[in-house]
């Protein structure tokens, strides 16, 4: 393990993430991990890494690193291009850099989260088997205490003697991954939780209006603006376990989508859960993005995830 890079400019919310901290929910410890799993898993795959290798998740703002060793890296997610020593290069491909080289991930206006992966993954001491940063739980990250990446931090990784080819996803797929999504975003949801206790009017309102991502979002969850509120006539719930991707309906009828750092228990009724692909799509949706939910069968959503899991060699889902 050796220091391979120094953070010149961290940006306002950059965190170290592996695939997540699993098996601790009963202790009140949430998962963490990449919000856009697709972008994260692609970067690790292109670098021949384990699916779980730690990366940096950058949220919207510019981020700059300076390398002190020869490494191979890959940037995916929101950034469609990167700069190495001020020379623009495409993202989503394996790039080689050496001592003194600077990598810049430009600030993003439209999409939210970019990922910087390095061959072998960034290294840090793990808490409960994971380096995933969860600020609220004071866990993970470079120092193991949930701190975000800061200017001046030194990033550790293994150094390799051989070189990987400068590969990237095949052309059509890459074009799809880089293209601007067509709006409104179409997000598949499966009925879950208290779905049966919502009125059929409420179930229809979920899919028969175009909603908008509000400006209230972070790694715990995001609020959605629904012109027509989703009504809940049932009683108050006794707090119960909450899955990543589930959609809570609080008393004001404005849906809340739970993301990776969600609290382990929640007291609002849930009407649906996002499919895996829908979670990856919403991970990149900034304030004001119009969205249309559509109902999906559980079997269909599971079949989609099984393909993903096989492609990326995932042992389990989020």
């Amino acid at each position: 393990m050796t220091s391979v890079a120094r953070v010149i400019k961290a940006g306002f919310h950059t965190s170290m993430q592996d695939f997540g901290r699993f098996g601790q929910l009963a202790m009140g410890i949430t998962r963490g991990g990449p919000v856009d799993e697709r972008a994260f898993l692609w970067a690790n795959r292109l670098l021949d890494n384990s699916y779980n290798a730690a990366q940096l998740e950058i949220t919207m703002s510019e981020c700059r690193l300076e390398f002190s060793a020869p490494v191979q890296l890959c940037v995916t997610g929101a950034a469609t291009e990167i700069r190495i020593n001020n020379v623009t290069q495409p993202s989503w491909q394996v790039v080689s850099v050496g001592p003194g080289d600077q990598l810049e991930i430009p600030a993003q206006q439209q999409r939210l989260r970019s990922y910087v992966a390095i061959r072998g993954g960034f290294l840090a001491n793990s808490c409960e088997g994971s380096v995933a940063t969860v600020r609220r739980d004071s866990r993970g990250g470079l120092h193991g205490d949930g701190r975000l990446i800061a200017d001046g931090d030194l990033l550790q990784a293994a150094v390799f003697n051989d070189q990987l080819p400068a590969r990237r996803p095949h052309r059509e797929l890459l074009a799809e991954l880089l293209s601007k999504p067509s709006l409104p975003l179409r997000l598949g949801i499966i009925p879950s939780g208290q779905f049966q206790q919502f009125s059929s009017a409420a179930q229809q309102l979920m899919v028969e209006q175009t909603m908008q991502v509000s400006s209230a979002y972070d790694r715990m969850g995001l609020r959605v603006i629904a012109q027509q509120a989703i009504p809940w006539q049932g009683e108050q719930l006794i707090s119960e376990p909450l899955a990543v991707g589930s959609i809570q309906i609080p008393a004001d009828g404005q849906p809340i989508i739970m993301l990776n750092d969600r609290q382990t228990l929640g007291g609002y009724p849930k009407i649906a859960t996002l499919s895996w692909l829908a979670r990856c799509q919403i991970a990149q949706a900034g304030a004001g993005t119009p969205i249309n939910f559509y109902w999906q069968e559980l079997a269909e959503a599971q079949a989609q995830w099984r393909q993903v899991a096989q492609f990326f060699h995932l042992p389990r889902s989020g």
């Binding site: 499966i190 009925p191 879950s192 939780g193 119960e240 376990p241 849930k270 859960t273 989020g318």
Partner: peptide, 15 residues
């Protein structure tokens, strides 16, 4: 009850 694409909720009496 279905809770997610990889999770089932077992619900006991509501108290």
């Amino acid at each position: 009850v279905t809770a997610a694409l990889d999770a089932l909720m077992v619900e006991f009496e509501n108290r």
